[in-house]
Write a protein that binds this DNA or RNA. Structure first.
Lengths: 195, 195
DNA sequence: GCCGGAATCTTGTCAATGACTAGATGCCGG
DNA sequence: CCGGCATCTAGTCATTGACAAGATTCCGGC
């Protein structure tokens, strides 16, 4: 019996998650349907519900995976470059290279916002950003470090959101998103270019 | 015959739009249903489709209204205070005080992204932001003014998005969103407090 | 080896929804 | 006053999410 036809799939949860990311990238998180997902994975229409409970559960799982991927990307960049600007660029790079995940991660109306795994994954990503800002020393005397970190997060998150929604592309300076994001991030970074 | 029972409603489009904003505020744009909307407005289940075509059309109309409201708020603040920081705060204030509109305006997967009215309304809002940044003189020598404006837009949009998604509230400094937004906006504004 | 419980997956079903069609109603200009 | 037309209703169909019940397979204990 071939692997695709046996009763027990073996790793259906992962297969569904992968197919979900593809589907979300095509039609967006809202229009993603559990039944289309099942169809593409060649399983019955109720199989996804068994693994994720409901649609909210599926998207929450995608969001958790997204936060984990983001954390890894940010952490690697922070350790490799030590640059706050580059961590910000990495945030944008993640959003551009994982559009389905990014489009899902902050849609609180489609997610189980109180899911423990989701909260933990989000906290880990936030932690990396905060330490990155703290070590960069961009906080000025008298400035609340939390406010500085929030400003940095807002800047890169806003750019990533606007880029993802297509609001930036049409009027952009013609640069690639990473280069444009770097220029934008430098505006905040004491307004001095980091070598 | 009472106004609510006559065949021709008189101003059904506006009534539907108002009800839609309320409904979106309760369940989010994705879960907003044309039929529930019709039920609340006491009309048949197909009436909304006549005015807006389909669900996408309804949400697009809400988004257009949102951009117009945003433009008015930004313009009033720009003329009244002349402060770039305050215009940014006004952006956040709009997002907080009109959560349904803000939650809809950038959901490109739920909108008619190529709708002429939508594009025009968005362009008007962007125009106000750009001129506000240009007049504030926050652009440093050698800095592309478009990049400065984009950074400012990203900052306030990111903060508004994170606040709306609840990512900021739990770890915030306990301030009201406007005050927190002002502190965040000041980080970008030459890093010097205005006034 | 095998047996029973549990996890996995399927089939069947129901209400709700979006979209479409045809038709009813009331307004407005000539 | 009448005819066209915008407005709104009623009916219908495919799709979807959610649930219930049952079939299949895996796994640990004996």
């Amino acid at each position: 019996m071939s692997a695709t036809q046996r009763y027990h799939h073996g790793d259906l949860r992962r297969a569904l998650l992968d197919a979900a990311v593809t589907l979300i990238a095509e039609v967006g998180p809202a229009a993603t349907s559990l039944r289309e997902l099942a169809r593409r994975t060649q399983v019955s229409h109720a199989a996804p519900a068994h693994h994720f409970g409901d649609k909210t559960g599926l998207l929450t799982a995608v969001a958790v995976q997204g936060f984990d991927l983001l954390t890894a990307e940010l952490r690697a960049t922070a350790e490799h470059t030590g640059s706050f600007v580059e961590v910000g660029v990495a945030y944008v790079r993640f959003a551009v290279s994982h559009p389905a995940h990014f489009a899902t991660m902050f849609r609180t109306d489609l997610l189980r916002a109180d899911d423990p795994d989701l909260c933990a994954a989000e906290a880990r990503a936030r932690e990396v950003l905060h330490t990155s800002v703290a070590r960069a020393g961009v906080t000025r005397p008298g400035e609340d470090p939390r406010v500085t970190a929030l400003a940095a997060w807002s800047l890169v998150h806003g750019f990533a959101s606007l880029w993802s929604s297509g609001s930036v592309r049409d009027q952009s300076t013609g640069q690639h998103p990473e280069e444009l994001a770097r220029a934008v991030a430098r505006v905040l970074s004491h307004r001095q270019p980091e070598s």
